[in-house]
Amino acid sequence: MAPLVFDIRHIQLLRKWGICGVLSGTLPTAAQQNVFLSVPLRLMLEDVLWLHHNNLADVKIIRQGGDKIMTGITRERGAKLSKLVEDRLNKSFEYQRKFKKDEHIEKLKKIGKINDETTAEELEQLNKSNNNDHLIESSLFIDIADTSMILEDINIESDGLSYDYIRDLLFKQYRQAGKMQTYFLYKALRDQGYVLSPGGRFGGKFIAYPGDPLRFHSHLTIQDAIDYHNEPIDLISMISGARLGTTVKKLWVIGGVEEQTNETHFFSVEWAGFG
């Protein structure tokens, strides 16, 4: 289950709340090149749980598979959707043609080919001689919508689902039971003003930025929560993590949650002896 956001306005709003996600459109296997990607925005499960916990977003669960959704569309509804898409595409083409023609006219005025006294017939003749209409048609692009008209027709469950139910559903993909402690680490860092992103590139669960990732480099590489009172810490992982963190100028951080008090504790490790 991957939480996805398709609406650009929602993505802008999420960024104001410190949730940046990873753009995954067209190149999902090269998510590190997110400057070149588009919607949908893929969120971490912790992002969704934090939003739900703070009443900032509704969690909508789509239980139907894509094949069932498509087969459930009636012929009449399919024809209506097709007409809507065609009308929207034609309006987009009309806007593009007008914009490009106006832009071309301004360029012709700047180079002195035409002026305010040029007639429509003279301008049309000039366009034909330059094959301008053909060039405009070949440059038109199809504007892909970032919202779905199909999802409006299906029954999406959202209301009446308890926080515990949503939590269990979101985290059922975790390999071990009791992984809510990792969310508490996430929440504690968010409460301190950090912006978190997936940390797989740097050998961690999260990487933490002191602000918007467009303005700051990440400072921390956070691991999954552990029971540091009883669970042993693998020294090889600690050494390799600390050395990697020093190389990429990040602190290697482990943490855990006290079961009785729910207090969160963090420990940072650096590799000494370099530089």
Rank of each mutant, 00 (worst) to 15 (best):
P3Y: 09
P3K: 12
F6G: 04
I8Q: 07
I8R: 02
I11W: 06
R15C: 08
S24L: 09
L27P: 03
P28N: 14
F36I: 08
V39C: 08
M44S: 04
D47V: 15
D47K: 08
H52P: 01
H52A: 13
N54Y: 15
A57G: 04
I61S: 01
Q64S: 14
G65E: 07
E76A: 13
L81P: 01
D87H: 12
K91M: 13
K91Y: 08
F93G: 00
F99L: 14
E103L: 15
K107F: 03
E121C: 09
L123K: 03
H134E: 15
I136P: 01
I142P: 03
D146F: 07
E157W: 03
S158Q: 14
S162T: 15
D168W: 03
K172P: 01
Q173R: 13
Q176D: 02
M180R: 01
T182G: 03
S197N: 07
K205S: 01
K205R: 14
I207G: 00
A208L: 09
L214P: 01
L214W: 04
H217N: 14
L220N: 00
D224I: 11
A225R: 01
I226L: 12
H229P: 03
N230K: 15
A242D: 04
A242Y: 05
R243K: 14
L244H: 06
T246Y: 14
K249A: 10
W252P: 00
I254P: 00
V257C: 04
E258Y: 04
T261R: 10
T264M: 03
F267P: 02
W271F: 15
